[in-house]
Nucleic acid binder design. Structure first.
Length: 429
RNA sequence: GCGGCUAUGGUGAAGUGGUUAUCACGCUAGUCUGUGGCACUGGAGUCAUGGGUUCAAUUCCCAUUAGCCGCCCCA
């Protein structure tokens, strides 16, 4: 038979990698629970209009990357789509579950897979895991700060110390169009001198022109109008407040007037976080911003909100690359080796008393030689082997062998139990 | 979606237009029969898939698939 392979851009997460993943998840949950975020799970797929309306039909994510699905083979329409991001679904859930009548702000977080049809590369998948938070119902800069701070806090607790935080404000539907017009007016008579990429950007996404690395374009960039100078009063004040919070709490950031996000629902604050050595932000770890109009676009009450998404796969990769300390899960701690039926009774007793103490004991009687049983014990990765054979059964003793140091001693049954108990009560947290 | 590079046992690597395709580690079976990680002896690869060129292809060519890099975009 042909061997089939996994779909492009997906991956298997094997047992060896699970420790890093659960470290990421448990750290994130601890931090977020501590900041009064509540966890929410939403469906993997939604009515595709949820995404279209929120992210914007012309955005790359919707236009080119959306996975459309049919409910079944006979279904004509593909009105469902795999979620390409988590915010729209969370906003839909906020509305549908009447969370607007709960005490505001409502702080939510989620963890799950996202789907985007695009060309895979390192740190870029068609199915990837994302951790995200959303804060609904507060338009103050406090929440912008809380959002950014919570992301950094998670990264710090994971052991990272060096990242880039880029912040910008892209204004609101009032002031943003005015700025874009200014920018295009500025470039209008320079189009012939600008690089081909920028010519293209002029129509599609003029803000990207500010980000051009081409040499010819540099001289125009410095003179170009800046978004921050074009913000309306409310937006400017909100942005200043946000930056003030970051300053006050000693969060280092770069103002980046070229920072724009790929989803249409963003307003005002936008930010991205990348690893310290990734100044260009080729591989963003976390990106987000404010989206004050999304809830009403999806048919809910006018509700300001801010949130972010974090690429779990990228963070986990980085954990491994930086060889940060990842707590190991408890495996087998003690193995009981029974040689001959005479030892059965004692072995049961040992198993029961250690199992009760929540020690991970592996006890499956085997007829194999002591030699091969020792081999298996070694392969199980146990710390201790308790060996009971004919002789021990007769004298009521047990051999306690420390498999790490290869030392062993002959103890009575009760002192053997006590010794093991002590080992694990002292070391286990 | 565009351009480029790559593809050899589980992993990492050699290598060749022609009889049994190397090496390390790992895995596995056994020897040593009351003591593991040592030692020794074995085992496992249709050289990504499908075509083509050739007397002959793992080695050359094409396509497909997948991975990686750049662009685009983003998590």
């Amino acid at each position: 038979m042909d061997q089939l392979q996994k779909p492009r851009g997906t991956k298997d997460i094997l047992p060896a990698e699970q420790a890093a993943w659960s470290f990421f998840r448990s750290t994130a949950e601890r931090v977020l629970n501590g900041l009064s975020f509540g966890k929410i799970n939403t469906p993997l797929f939604e009515d595709k209009r949820i995404f279209e309306r929120g992210a914007g039909e012309s955005s790359d994510i919707i236009e080119k990357q959306l996975y459309l699905i049919k409910a079944n083979k006979n279904e004509e329409n593909d009105e469902l789509a795999l979620r390409p991001e988590g915010t729209a679904g969370a906003a839909r859930a906020y509305i549908e579950n009447g969370m607007s009548s709960q005490p505001q702000p409502v702080r939510l977080y989620y963890f799950g897979t996202m789907y985007r049809y695009e060309r895979p590369q390192a740190g870029r998948y068609r199915e990837h895991n994302q951790l995200g938070v959303e804060i609904f119902g507060d338009d103050s800069a406090e929440s912008d700060y809380l959002a950014i701070m919570s992301a950094l806090e998670i990264l710090k607790k994971l052991g990272f110390s060096d990242f880039n935080v880029a912040v910008n404000s892209i204004g609101c539907p009032e002031c943003r169009p005015k700025y874009l017009k200014k920018l295009k007016d500025y470039y209008a008579d320079k189009l012939s001198k600008v690089c081909p990429d920028c010519k293209r950007r002029y129509d599609i996404n003029p803000l990207r022109m500010l980000d051009c690395k081409n040499e010819e374009c540099q001289k125009f960039k410095t003179q170009a109008p800046q978004m921050v100078d074009s913000l309306c009063t409310e937006c400017r004040e909100h942005f200043q407040d946000t930056l003030q919070y970051l300053d006050d709490f000693g969060i280092k950031f770069d103002l980046d007037n070229t920072l724009v996000r790929g989803l249409d629902y963003y307003t005002r604050t936008v930010f991205e976080i990348s690893a310290g050595n990734d100044k260009e932000r080729h591989s963003t770890l976390c990106g987000g911003g404010r989206y004050d109009n999304l809830v009403s676009i999806l048919g809910g009450p006018k509700t300001p909100a801010v949130g972010w998404g974090m690429g779990a796969d990228r963070v986990v990769d980085l954990l491994k690359d930086n060889s940060l300390k990842i707590p190991k899960p408890r495996g087998v701690e003690v193995v009981i080796l029974e040689i001959g039926d005479a030892a059965k009774k004692v072995c049961r007793q040992l198993f029961n008393s250690l199992d009760k103490e929540d020690i991970n004991v592996f006890y499956i009687p085997s007829k194999l030689s002591l030699r091969s049983q020792m081999k298996s014990a070694s392969k199980l990765g146990a710390d201790f082997a308790l060996i009971v054979g004919q002789q021990e059964a007769l004298t009521g003793s047990v051999i306690v062998r420390d498999l790490r140091s290869s030392t062993q001693e002959d103890l009575s049954i009760s002192s053997a139990i006590d010794m093991i108990k002590e080992k694990y009560s002292a070391t286990s947290e």
